[in-house]
Design a binder for these strands. Structure first.
Lengths: 352, 352
DNA sequence: ATGAAAGCGCTAACAT
DNA sequence: ATGTTAGCGCTTTCAT
């Protein structure tokens, strides 16, 4: 605590020199090797601390040609709870593991994604947590097969474990809920089928329509990339149709925000003129007037699983070969729950 | 595009060997050194590409003992627009610069912050973009003085450039707006004065009260750490007071969400019983019923400035000494604007 | 239990 | 214009 400034450049050789031991011994002591006399190890650690020595992670990672110094975190967006909440929790867990997280945002652009993946392997990341872009390139997939990967939210058909939300059931439930209220004109606004979660949600919707004995093929459906603008657009289109729906289910967080906004702007009364079920964890869904019935997911739980999955995969492969599929860990699902609030009610026709 | 799998391990020596040139030549060619015959350079680049060579950034950074391979991005939270929006934009700009961003979340814990800063310098980050924790440790400040740093949102009194929102004026304006409507009982719920932006906002409030000729010292004030829970708590406390305010200004994004929620839960009618001004960019402020008058900031602009500031600082110091204060770049401010909506109106007394 | 020395993959003098 | 050769700071055999 005495001297000030000058924080750098104390290397392992300095510490070794000061104590008259070899760099190997210092390295061993600092890494807790049992091969070094405990008393000496102690002395070394104290001196290193005193001199403010901090090991160069780059050199360490370069030397130990495999290290968990870094992992890549690759996502399309970060400014939505579905991603920022996961990022938070992963950062926490990985940091506790002594691993740093390189954040990379693709904005759902396959080219950027590929470029970023290349640079991540160039940084010798130990592994990757990724939510792939919609139209991921073949080359990107190949890269992904060369290291430990965990997917979340979206799957891209590679041989990797993943964590997803169990949206299908929640979607089915939502349809049945609306049908039970008397709705027959139910519309769905969701994300494209190319997105694995888009496909899953749509399947849930269709199943629900079938179970409710409603016209699966005739239902109004709009599938767009998940942006707020598209949420607005979807609602605008649906409301403008000759026979507008009496109920709308939105499958996607960003879409939901835009959709809710558009419904409000259209002056459409909820739930009298339109019953609405949104998707996601936005705090304001509950604050809206009326509060919105919504499907919510525990992103913390999802993140925790993803991080643990990756960490365990890193542990598993001591020096294993490249693409080996060790244990066929199937996809994990966290529950998605339908929370009823004031935005769903019987259709106007059923009230008279 | 032909062969598959096996993406690793082609090093610069392989490329050099294949072409019968030295590693130095390959290195030069790949780094665009003018010293290499253009035709050869071209051939080298093509072959490297063909063999799927990707330079090891770790080795590169280690060798060129100063590199901009990585920068640290240190923030208290990421699941709020004030940070996620900035993260997005910084990631974009830094990535375009060929720099990877190591994301680190302090959760406003000074110890974690210090730990993370240590590990960041251990990774030889070229610089840091940071929003310091409330009670940053002295040791952390010292670390920060050893490399290029740009602060944002919060300043911690180190000698570094920073980008902040010009909250003071917006706060003053808000008070004057309410005063003009006839309010005299104006309360403020904000973040602690230890936070530089907390202090700034409070100053704006006080100045506004003074300009409006209202009782500065007597006004109800609650200063809490920025969390939603505290937002609720603040509102609960203020509404429970013997003489509850007729208007409330909230200075903080997370506080605002909690506050809005609490006001609604208290069954308090807006703006009849309480005029409300919130802070931040949450999409739902506009969607609330009534839409909330709010102070909003362009985080993209702020992020852009922060990233550019850091990049330019990295360019500046070719091999400069440690803590040198090159040019005294003062703090930059992005404008914060008061947007009026339906949540502010004359007090009940001025109507009845 | 400890030291000497050989790398890890690259860049940068210093030759030629 | 290109090749040779030291390192960068650490880990890790291989000796002792």
């Amino acid at each position: 605590v005495g001297s000030r400034g000058r924080v750098r450049k104390v290397g392992i050789v300095d510490v070794a020199g000061d104590l008259g031991v070899s760099t190997a011994t210092v390295s061993r002591a600092l890494n807790g090797s049992p091969a070094v006399r405990p008393e000496l190890a102690q002395r070394i650690r104290e001196h290193a601390e005193a001199r403010g020595y901090v090991a160069n992670r780059l050199a360490r990672a370069l030397s130990a040609n495999v290290s968990r110094a870094f992992v890549g975190f690759v996502i399309p967006y970060v400014d939505t709870p579905a991603y920022s909440a996961v990022a938070t929790e992963c950062a926490r867990l990985l940091s506790a593991d002594g691993t740093q997280m390189i954040l990379t945002i693709t904005e759902n652009d396959p080219e950027r994604e590929l470029q970023q993946l290349k640079e991540l392997v160039a940084s010798r990341v130990a592994g990757l947590i990724i939510s792939p872009s919609t139209h991921i390139l073949e080359q990107s997939k190949q890269l992904l097969s060369s290291l430990p990967v965990v997917e979340f939210h979206r799957a891209c058909g590679i041989d990797a474990p993943g964590v997803f939300s169990a949206d299908e059931q929640a979607m089915t439930e939502s349809v049945l809920h609306l049908a039970a209220l008397g709705h027959t004109e139910i519309a769905y606004l969701g994300t494209p089928e190319q997105l694995s979660n888009g496909a899953l949600r749509l399947r849930g919707i269709r199943r629900g329509m079938g179970l409710a004995g409603l016209d699966v093929d005739g239902m109004p459906i709009r599938l767009f990339e998940p942006t707020r603008r598209n949420g607005q657009r979807g609602v605008t289109e649906l409301l403008a149709s000759p026979r507008p729906p009496t109920a709308l289910i939105v499958g996607g967080g960003a879409l939901s925000i835009g959709a809710a906004q558009a419904v409000r702007e259209a002056g459409c009364r909820i739930p009298d003129e339109l019953s609405l079920v949104v998707y996601g964890d936005s705090s304001w869904f509950a604050l809206s007037d009326p509060p919105l019935s919504r499907i919510s997911v525990s992103y913390e739980d999802l993140a925790r699983r993803a991080a643990r999955l990756l960490i365990s995969r890193l542990d598993d492969r001591p020096t294993a070969g490249a693409a080996g599929a060790a244990e066929p860990t199937g996809p994990q699902f966290v529950t998605a729950e339908l929370h009823l609030a004031g935005s769903t009610g019987p259709p106007a026709s059923a009230r008279g």
